[in-house]
């Protein structure tokens, strides 16, 4: 599997395109059924960070009707499967995004919407905007464009469903669990000590 390096994004794309790397064949039939259900029903927590927030409501309307794919919006991260990060993330927003992501229950997936989440987009020289979302959160699907049309977002959903159903790559939440040190180091680099509490810290707080 690709490492999360400078080239990680491109390597991952190669893996997705190559059938040989697919982990589909090693799965049991129960796991395949489970994946099918997960792909068929998606609850979305839409986090409107930037201008992309305005492109999300249309997909629920009569014209685009994302509900026919089994995608519905929910109001709380507890029930959500998918986090849409729609647009640029400033430091302050990113902290809230990470908190929302960590409150979601596994399995969970992240969609990065717009060029800003990929490489900073038009905010590439902004002092307060992160450039690569996948340094801080595992992103399962990027949708580029500034802004992407709702059609692009729907195609992103379809591709993500395809990835989940056919188990084309290791899901992001597993990477987040296994490479947690990498993500935390990056988060701490910009938040300092004020980052979200670790699992151990949470646990320690509960016993007191």
């Amino acid at each position: 599997m690709p490492e999360n390096t400078q080239e990680g994004f491109i390597d991952q794309q190669k893996v997705l395109d190559n059938e040989e790397y697919s982990i589909k064949n090693t799965q049991s039939i129960i796991q395949k059924a489970v994946d099918w259900f997960r792909a068929r029903s998606m609850f979305v927590l839409a986090y409107g960070t930037g201008c992309g927030a305005i492109e999300m409501p249309p997909i629920f309307t009569s014209r685009y009707d994302i509900e026919r794919l089994g995608v519905v919006g929910v109001a709380t991260p507890r029930q959500a499967d998918i986090l849409i990060v729609s647009g640029y993330c400033s430091y302050k927003t990113l902290k809230r995004v990470i908190r929302s992501y960590e409150q979601m229950n596994e399995p969970k997936y992240v969609i990065g919407l717009g060029s800003c989440t990929i490489n900073g987009g038009m905010y590439w020289d902004s002092y307060n905007t992160i450039k690569k979302l996948d340094e801080y959160l595992p992103v399962d699907m990027y949708i580029n464009g500034c802004m992407p049309r709702p059609e692009a977002l729907i195609e992103g959903f379809v591709k993500l469903q395809d990835n989940i159903r056919n188990a084309k790559s290791e899901a992001g939440y597993i990477q987040y669990r296994e490479n947690n040190a990498f993500y935390r180091a990056n988060q701490e680099k910009i938040f300092g000590k004020n980052t979200t509490p670790t699992f151990e810290e949470n646990f320690a707080g509960m016993n007191q």
Binding site: Q6, E7, F9, S126, I130, K131, K132, I190
Partner: peptide
Amino acid sequence: YVNEHFDFRI
């Protein structure tokens, strides 16, 4: 500041 704190995607 940006060049110091961020690395850009190739």
